[in-house]
Design a binder for these strands. Structure first.
Length: 588
DNA sequence: GCCGTTTTCGGCCCGACTGTTTTCAGTCG
């Protein structure tokens, strides 16, 4: 069995290191951008790059040519590359840290190094405090102040991204407060843009786009919102603030006629936009956030402008179907839109019920009946009660006897709904603990009596790759285990995924008909989008569930559906879009 | 360094804002 030492992410980081060193060294823009582009490609790859190298398919990847392929091959074999070694001889590697300081880019870092001999953050701080930096042409007192502030910020904040589950409510709150602070006619339209609109699992900052006849008034109100700690930029049409919780937020104001191009532009992703602009250029148009302008190389006379009040019209003009924001990651969606082959993405309306949830019999906060009634209120046709089994220390889990008691309750409740003509079924299952040694916490004869079994790992999360993978495979190979819950056990910005070999797990699920869960809780989002895409490519079925521990958690379903949409999933890929009888047939 | 619906050579997205400038380079998204 192949156990690889270096992951896709390791490779991407190595390529980024090379790009950064090349940039500081002053190599041409396109030489280092090539490495950065390749890093993005490798990072969003569903397959293990070791397998791609083994198959000799490396240069089939976009942005990977001879040079990048050579680096990747060397890195996978040795953990380093000749190119990186050569660059480290020429450029002090600690300069990379300086790039993280706000306002410092490669050009300035290179000058600080060459003209003042600064190579570390400590030296940079000392030089700024001693007012030595202002001696350099192009730097002044304000530059020193900004550098010191930047270093301070870096020490306190790190470079962590914010989970979508925090960012999305924050941006919706800002929009609501901004509207409330202004007269009704000041804002014609306002929307979150950027990675929040693309439902990316974590975001670097917040973006808001507004149509307004009076941008100055809107900018002023925005900069004085109570959430704002610092105003970083304040312009006519664009402002950037730092909020009290440390998040940064951009607001852009545009005129009505620019809405289509502006919303498209500020939604990104950056790479999607670059591809779209390249496509426009081929058709003789230069695309900006304001308009399309003819370059003169196409049919229209140079300088002719086209405006788009809606995104759909812009995409259509370029010969494309409208691309849902969740797909705009430069993963081949533009080619599909061109040939009218975009998938019909799943929506929350397709969800017929949930297949993972808890009651106060384990660590949930509501009764079985309360949870089921919340599911009914959402229009679901079924809901799986799956309390933790015994074997998980922190929650008094259910055993054979308690499951029998739950069965009585479930049957009584179902009878009541049937008598009342309510089209709903409460299903009885369990969230089965996969123990540290790979055994399951309940016996097969107990599991056989349940409607659906979700098996999950909650403990011994630091086991090595082989051990924890075998643990999951034991569960997958059990004929009674229907669903593998939150497969990597990661918690966004709290703990990393386990070392589990997802490629092996997904292949085993495809072979056995075991369903993989997209856990919709915004802290988990596990499977993530890349894994979900790969799982479906390998023939796996998916379930999307919120893992609700109280009724309100069922609102999280939109986060899980968003992961599925980012993975290009349709309702056919997801079993809980089926009516309950067909759904049960889809289980093994 | 990568890439091809004009191309194996000659391109490679576009604009706002800042700090330092007397007209712009650098950074950022």
């Amino acid at each position: 069995m192949t156990t690889h030492q270096y992951t896709n992410h390791d490779v991407a980081e190595h390529l980024r290191l090379i790009a950064n060193l090349k940039e500081i060294k002053g190599e041409g823009r396109f030489h280092y951008l090539a490495f950065r582009n390749a890093a993005e490609v490798v990072d969003s790859l569903g397959e293990d790059i070791n397998d791609i190298v083994a198959a000799g398919k490396l240069t089939d990847l976009p942005s990977v040519g001879k040079g990048v392929a050579e680096v990747i091959t060397q890195f996978l074999a040795s953990g380093d590359s000749d190119l990186a070694a050569k660059l480290r001889d020429q450029v002090p590697i600690s300069l990379i840290d300086l790039l993280a300081v706000e306002g410092l880019g490669p050009k300035k870092v290179a000058r600080l190094w060459q003209e003042l001999g600064i190579t570390t953050l400590d030296e940079l701080k000392a030089a700024a405090e001693a007012q030595k930096i202002r001696q350099l042409k192009g730097f002044g007192a304000k530059s020193e102040e900004k550098i010191l502030k930047g270093i301070d910020l870096l020490a306190r904040r790190g470079d962590e991204r914010t989970p979508l589950g925090v960012a999305r409510p924050a941006v919706l709150g800002l929009i609501a407060d901004l509207k409330a602070a202004l007269p009704d006619d000041a804002i014609t339209a306002i929307e979150p843009a950027g990675s929040v609109r693309r439902w990316k699992e974590s975001v670097g900052d917040l973006d808001i786009l507004a149509i307004t006849p009076r941008p100055a008034e809107v900018m002023a109100a925005f900069c004085s919102l109570p959430q704002v700690r610092d105003v970083l930029w304040r312009g006519e049409t664009k402002s950037r603030v730092r909020l009290k919780d440390g998040l940064e937020c951009d607001l852009r104001a545009v005129a009505q006629k620019h809405w289509g191009t502006a919303l498209q532009y500020f939604t990104g992703s950056k790479q999607h936009n670059i591809e779209l602009r390249e496509l426009a250029l081929k058709q003789g148009w230069s695309l900006s956030e304001y308009d399309l302008e003819a370059t003169g190389r196409g049919d229209a006379p140079a300088g002719e402008k086209r405006h788009f009040a809606a995104e759909e019209a812009l995409y259509e003009f370029l010969g494309l179907d409208w691309i849902p924001p969740e797909m705009r990651e430069a993963r081949g969606e533009i080619a599909l839109a061109r040939t009218h082959n975009l998938p019909r993405l799943i929506t929350t309306a397709d969800i017929q019920g949930e297949l993972h949830g808890h009651s106060n019999w384990s660590d949930g906060k509501a009764t079985i009946q309360e949870m089921a009634e919340a599911a009914i209120a959402r229009g679901y046709k079924y809901w799986l009660l799956s309390d933790h089994s015994i074997g998980l220390g922190v929650t008094g889990g259910v055993d054979s006897e308690k499951l029998a008691q739950q069965r009585d309750i479930v049957e009584e409740l179902n009878q009541g709904w049937a008598d009342a003509g309510v089209d709903f079924r409460l299903l009885l299952g369990v969230e089965l603990e996969i123990l540290a040694d790979g055994r399951l916490a309940l016996t097969n004869d107990v599991l056989a009596k349940l409607d659906v079994v979700v098996a999950s790992i909650h403990s011994s999360l630091r086991q090595d790759r082989e051990t924890i993978t075998r643990r999951a495979l034991n569960a997958i190979n059990n004929p009674h285990v229907d669903i593998l819950g939150h497969p990597t056990s990661r918690m966004l910005s709290r703990r990393p995924p386990t070392e589990i070999d997802m490629e092996r797990v997904m292949r085993a699920c495809a072979e056995t008909g075991t369903v993989l869960e997209i856990n919709a809780h915004p802290v988990r989002l596990d499977l993530n989008d890349v894994h979900a895409r790969r799982a479906v490519d390998l023939g796996c079925k998916i379930a999307i569930s919120t893992d609700a521990h109280r009724p309100q958690h069922m609102d999280f379903i939109e986060y899980g559906v968003a992961v599925a949409r980012r993975a290009w999933l349709t309702s056919e890929n997801v079993i809980n879009t089926l009516p309950w009888d067909k759904m049960q047939q889809a289980l093994k």
